[in-house]
């Protein structure tokens, strides 16, 4: 079962994504800030990461660069309330960019798409 790491400082959103992903059949783990997220990347080897951008402390953009330094084979979905980050070239190295929505169809679709692609590669 694929493991998805959710990094978001909003507890209700973590719970929402966790609920939806589990329902879709994924194993989940959650981190409430970027530092904890990086630690889990190292220790728990997630198959995919859903990363918020605006967080207290280290932001998602910096976290993304560090994740890529650690292991650039893990797909990263940037999931943010700000659609304008899409214009920041530092976000371009993420595998997907999704604006947060109460309708998780797009997010779940993207998770499946990226994991399927990864499986084909492997």
């Amino acid at each position: 079962m694929a493991k998805v790491l959710i990094v978001d400082d909003e507890p209700h959103l973590r719970l929402l994504y966790e609920t939806e992903l589990r329902r879709a059949g994924y194993e989940t783990m959650t981190a409430n800030n970027a530092d904890q997220g990086l630690e889990y990347v190292e220790t728990m080897g997630p198959d995919l990461i859903i990363l918020d951008i605006r967080m207290a402390g280290m932001d998602g953009i910096e976290a993304l660069q560090r994740i890529l330094d650690m292991d650039n084979t893990i797909p990263v979905i940037l999931n943010t309330a700000y659609s304008s980050y899409r214009e920041n070239y530092l976000t371009w190295s993420a595998d997907a960019y999704i604006t947060k929505s109460s309708d998780t169809t797009e997010l779940l679709g993207k998770v499946k798409e990226l994991l399927d692609a990864k499986m084909v590669e492997n």
Binding site: L13, S101, S102, T104
Partner: peptide, 21 residues
């Protein structure tokens, strides 16, 4: 508007997401 919109979007996503659930 940008600040307000952002501060509103996160709780809205949670409300709407759970309402769907």
């Amino acid at each position: 508007s940008a600040i307000v919109a952002h501060e509103l979007r996160n709780p809205l996503v949670a409300i709407g997401g759970f309402a769907r659930a």
